[in-house]
Design a binder for these strands. Structure first.
Lengths: 235, 235, 235, 235
DNA sequence: AATGAATGAGAATTCATTCAT
DNA sequence: TATGAATGAATTCTCATTCAT
């Protein structure tokens, strides 16, 4: 249960000019996530991709996905409109890539941390603290993950949902382990607990992100939420 | 603390031909939710507004707010495109109205139920069961409330946020009461608990709505979530 | 040359319900002025037609033809939107009818007055004073005639132009008579003078209507303009 | 008093992608004529603006402002619909710009010519000949200036009126000078004469433009109109 | 005759995406 | 690779006109 819950595939990105006649194609595409990709960075193109992504988090977080113009992202990134299409297939692909690149980071970190904790309660607390802790570091990211992502229904249903379920699974497995070892009560569904826990954290992060977003507030909240759940799960 | 947290104002709706008054008014309005309203169409236009709203829940839930065309809603409602603008100022107004009309219903129900429960734990359990129970009745509504609403960032920030906070407040007050009476432990922030509880329910409803949405599943989950929180709050 | 320059045809108006399926037809219609008409006024329907016309002058003068909504005219006239279509075939027909009813009045007045003046110079002066004098009485009308009418290009070209030419003709004939009798110099084209005179009056009325429209100003101007032209025409 | 009455500002034009700045700006602007401007497209977009303007004169002159579809202008200019919005903020802005660009030309020409004439009568004759002469060169322009411009009431009142008054002023000043030097009679108001003269020319041009528009006719008329006024003004 | 709710064709404008340079 | 002018499909909303009552 220490392995990542998010597949780490899709580390590649489209190489400039791999674009076909995709125009308006997205409307009917079944899967938005199959993208042609190539090694980008001869010279220092990877830099530009990153610049675009980081501009995108900021702008998406501020205005939402739909209200954001591709040209705004370009401007914020300091590149030409067309350049964005050298690195991303479409506006939506930009959102997916954003989500991926950020979540990937979050998950790989988690994957490294979890093994350090021996008991299920400790691991659950660690997950909770990590989720809020990581979001706190990047408010824009928190907003993207908690709010923006939900703006693209298609994205949500097709792309994010499976990854999200995988993440939930990894939490559920912690609960399961705890139940097996007698650390947690057995009369609750591990998956339900996982969903409730994730939702609780998401809700806390959401109000935080939409509100004043005080520094340190999320981290402090983490302890209480962990407490609440750990007590609630006590046999 | 039994009084509703949502103002029940705005129970009126615009009658056809409020046009000219409503026209573009939103552009400059500070609050997008103050709308001119009148008796619904006498004659036989009375149910049009409701028909449009209920078509909107369905279509929005299926495709999301942005991906839904006004003409699709019109078609689903069996009216002409223009008719929608007789009852709603804009596409966005339709979403707000939808949210309002539904949430209003949910809240007034809650307002009536809560007083029937004597202790804070019972009231918390009641809230949890009601939130999930009511959503279960209308899957589309659940999706609108948990997903779609977040699609309009402006809506979320300007309109829904305050109402949402008011709802959270009413939950927080239950916690507070319980802490005052010694029924709940005092070392957690009532507001934090409220946010976590709401988030947990939202998360459970979200996965339910996006997933298979089995009948009865939500109601069954409610008990476990309530249990989790009540135990977690035990002094 | 005392006979009216405007045909007095078209004194009839459409009777309620004579309407066919004219919808959008105007787009392709060649002649906008052929209208079915009937005696209206059993009871007192004529009153209503007049009320609509007079509301229309006011509203058109204020906002221009295109910027005016049929519903605004209806409101100003105190009738329902649909009622307008009982008396006028279309919005454009309303403008034409307006023009006609007003111009008719002006012309019949002129027809009665001219014979009272014996010499060509006196008649020219009378025409000038009448044109400005009548406009001064109704500022809104002045605006409709000088500005609004030009807004409907089709109207201008198809309907108003011939009538306008007829009016010019009647002025030209005064000049011609004067030249024949030796009262006016003969080295200018009567039609050119007529156009110039009409334009001069129109220009004076236009700036007056668009400006402060002081009472009495137009009448005072008339004398000077008449003077200018009469001197200019002196043999 | 030989200096031009029209400010020659606004010689610049928006470059493509001034979007975002210009967007909807007019809605709140007090003066609709302050527009962001930049060097026209380098590369090869340079003549696009001009091509659009000249297509617009043609189409507006033919169908009138309101009856003209933006797509028609685009087609006539040989560009895509959207391209128009790269150079003009809106359809109305296109009309204003048209007026400006043309009138500017006319006025700067006049500014250069007037000083060549020594006496007030000569200058008045020059103005008359120029106004008609320049219009004759471009029939479409004549129509735009005499008819189309009046179609946008807002335009007329907000934008054109002040410029128009300034032009009248410059004519009035010629009259005034003539009166001061004893070349013109003093018992007429210079401004009234200016308005009458402009109106006369406008009227002549209007019937010419709406009629057969024979080559040379306007120029020939100019002499007679000038004669008429000069004689009429003789002390 | 009158009403006004409903209609739906139509039009301006936007903006993701392309492609010539 | 990068640019940004150009494209044009698509979408919201308006409003003249109709027609059931």
């Amino acid at each position: 249960m220490t392995e990542s819950s998010f597949s780490s595939a899709r580390a590649k990105r489209p190489s400039p000019r791999a674009r076909g006649t995709a125009k308006r194609a997205a409307r009917s595409e079944g899967a938005a996530h199959t993208r042609v990709t190539t090694e980008p960075g001869r010279k220092r193109g990877g830099d530009k991709r990153e610049r675009i992504l980081s501009a995108a988090v900021r702008v998406f977080a501020k205005n939402g996905f739909y209200a954001t113009r591709v040209s705004e992202v370009a401007k914020a990134a300091g590149v030409a409109d067309g350049t964005i299409y050298l690195y991303f297939k479409s506006k939506e692909d930009l959102l997916v890539s954003l989500f991926e690149s950020r979540v990937e980071k979050l998950l790989s970190f988690m994957k490294g941390e979890l093994p350090k904790h021996a008991t299920a309660p400790e691991r659950l607390r660690a997950v909770i603290e990590m989720q809020l802790g990581l979001l706190e570091g990047e408010r824009d990211l928190a907003e993207v993950v908690t709010v923006i992502l939900r703006q693209s229904t298609k994205l949500m249903k097709e792309y994010a949902h499976p990854r999200f379920l995988a993440y939930l699974d990894s939490i559920a497995r912690i609960i399961q382990d705890g139940q097996a070892s007698g650390e947690f009560r057995r009369d609750v569904s591990p998956h339900l607990v996982a969903r409730a826990a994730f939702g609780a954290l998401d809700g806390v992060a959401l109000t935080w992100a939409l509100g004043r977003a005080e520094q340190g507030a999320l981290r402090r909240s983490a302890g209480q939420v962990a407490d609440l759940f750990l007590r609630g799960l006590r046999p």
